[in-house]
Design a protein around this nucleic acid. Structure first.
Lengths: 131, 131
DNA sequence: TATAAAACCTATCTTGTAAATAGGTTTTAT
DNA sequence: ATAAAACCTATTTACAAGATAGGTTTTATA
């Protein structure tokens, strides 16, 4: 199940895309428009800024804006950065202790296939598609 | 993320399919082979018995067995019955309070599409495929 | 008919973590 | 100087996953 981190991040990205004309969009405004906690959003944003999806400008008149055209953001990229863990099962999560029984496991290929169709779908849509 | 309920149910179904020759498979044996808690499995099984995927026989010499050939069980069927909730996001979960902002929501179609590709994939594989 | 082995039932506990709250510091335009 | 913004980090709260626990009922068989 996709958590609020990923869902909110997507809504924030869409909100910025919609509201940045040529300036910066204050997160306070985003939080108000979206009905989300500003403080909570502030914890999610570093995942996006540190990976260059958005840039923040500090100080009065500051805010955030996109670094690319909306069509160049795959939804999968946004979700993978903000979700703690997007794997379908915990044993496939990055950093999971590798399973002893992997060689004999009859289900792992199924789960890997599920991860693939999910990621392929999420990468087939861009921010622009949702606007 | 798929929880242990669905993952264990799948392993139980595969174990029964493998070990039922013409008799019944005691869940105690399954738990031992799979390294899972018998008491925990007993809480998951009703979802499968009540929907006719397996039958249980009480008493000495009893156990469980499949009601169909392995090729006639879609994995999606097993997971939808045992997972509390298989929707990608909580607002699409069955029994979720319907969202006020649904009409204007720019993300709901994306999540519905994600649910669809997941279910389509899970329904494209059968128990037999994993054996 | 006593016993063992199985399914079946229901309550409780433990623990991790998602989600949010809280209270700051730093930067920058005016 | 001030206001408004990003940026940073610690703590709290609430809930549910995951399991444990202790039964009852059913049935084969010795």
């Amino acid at each position: 199940m996709i958590s609020t981190r990923g869902r909110y991040a997507l809504r924030v990205m869409l909100d910025i895309a919609t509201n940045q004309k040529d300036g910066y969009v204050p997160m306070k405004d985003v939080a108000l428009r979206q009905g989300l906690s500003l403080k909570y959003l502030e914890q999610i944003l570093p995942a996006l800024t540190k990976n260059g999806l958005i840039v923040g400008l500090q100080g009065k008149g500051g805010g955030y804006r996109l670094t690319r055209p909306a069509g160049e953001y795959k939804i999968g990229e946004i979700l993978r950065l903000t979700e703690k863990d997007l794997a379908s099962v915990s044993c496939l999560a990055p950093g999971a202790p590798k399973c002893e029984k992997r060689a004999e496991c009859k289900t792992v290929a199924f789960w890997e296939g599920l991860d693939k169709v999910m990621n392929d779908y999420m990468d087939s849509k861009t921010l622009e598609d949702l606007l």
